[in-house]
Design a protein around this nucleic acid. Structure first.
Lengths: 201, 201
DNA sequence: ACGAAGTTGCACACGGCTGTGCAAGTTATG
DNA sequence: CATAACTTGCACAGCCGTGTGCAACTTCGT
């Protein structure tokens, strides 16, 4: 009769589940519901109060990751394509947790299509930048832009994974320069381009 | 009373299991015993005639991979460190199946230590080459050799994975040049170094 | 062709993870 | 404070993969 407004802590717990899930899945793609729930400070049983099942929870995590990634990538500007690429690397670094969590699921069984959708913004932006840069011969052109894009994309993810462990303080810089190097830009030029992005912050 | 020599097809089946296992695990790290057995043309039950259990089978696959990797890496020569790095990339490409299968298990749960051992030869060689090259400022030096080594190592694996799908005919070339680029060597120099290796074949 | 080595199919036990029902507890909110 | 909202713990069913025993069958070696 008197339908009350949903409790505020419920929403918080939902968020906690998404956060914990992201963290847990980043470590182990097959993390148990028990694991995730515990890490979120809840019981396994409580999860079913927020999501119909494990799949739905994971989907929600990927979905949230996708929107955050899209936000981090931001709109395309008409700046220098390589500067744009460097900036993209920096942006991804600022969203490591989400990107990393989603990326880890990419190769894992099933779910491939969903995750691919989440990563699409990155993929597309990288490709666009490379095509531009290739036409001016500023990146290696002995490989098709498609393949090079895949390699650069992976290079970006490699930094996120490697630097997350090594926790280098100049990790953000690496996140910008390494993909450029992977594209065939020399180390010196890559550093110059990255500095250009940093100066404009 | 009359101990007979073991049958020849048994050994073949054992090999078939290792091959099938490598292929299956390369696709899906959690491939079922059923999957592997079927792919090898055997029944799940028969596997237990060759290995005490799933773990032992996987261990055997990793172990065989390790020796093949070690063989592919070969002995250290006193050539130019970057040429050596290019050659290493080529060698790994020629052993894709094994390297790839083992590498895929690296991040997967458990088994981490075992796999790390299998990859050690690559890891070590890459590090050595980079340290040499860094002291001559022929690779980027704004990152520690350790971190750079991790990135280059991953770059090598990235090629194996990307090119395995894209099946570019110049994949072997990529396997040599891309790690160099990842190290900060410009595209032109990388191509020159790789050509140097190819010419000496 | 005989016999051992190897394979198969089936049945079954075991463990781990998911998903559900329900009663009892705790906590936010009006 | 009263009550709906949320959480908890437990019990139970179901699924799936592993590991084992056993009888029947096929295939290699001599």
């Amino acid at each position: 009769m008197t339908p009350r407004t949903p409790r505020a802590d419920s929403a918080r717990n939902r968020e906690a589940l998404l956060d914990a899930g992201g963290r847990a899945l980043r470590r182990d793609v097959d993390a148990t519901l028990e694991d995730i729930a515990t890490e979120a400070g809840l019981s396994r049983r409580a999860v079913y109060g927020h999501f119909p099942g494990r799949d739905a929870l994971v989907d929600a995590i990927v979905e949230r990751g996708a929107t955050r990634i899209a936000a981090a990538v931001g709109p395309r500007t008409d700046e220098d394509p390589l500067v744009a690429l460097a900036r993209l690397g920096g942006a991804l670094w600022d969203a490591v947790a989400d990107v990393h969590a989603v990326a880890r699921m990419a190769l894992s069984s099933g779910r491939g299509a969903t995750v691919a959708g989440a990563m699409a913004p990155i993929r597309e932006r990288v490709r666009a930048c490379l095509v531009d840069a290739a036409s001016a011969h500023r990146v290696r052109t002995d490989v098709s832009p498609e393949v090079l894009a895949l390699l650069v994309e992976r290079a970006a993810l490699d930094v996120l994974e490697v630097a997350a462990q090594a926790e280098a303080d100049d990790a953000r810089m690496l996140a910008m320069t390494h993909p450029l190097c992977a594209a065939g830009v020399g180390a010196a030029d890559a550093a110059r381009l990255a500095r250009q992005v940093e100066d404009a912050r």
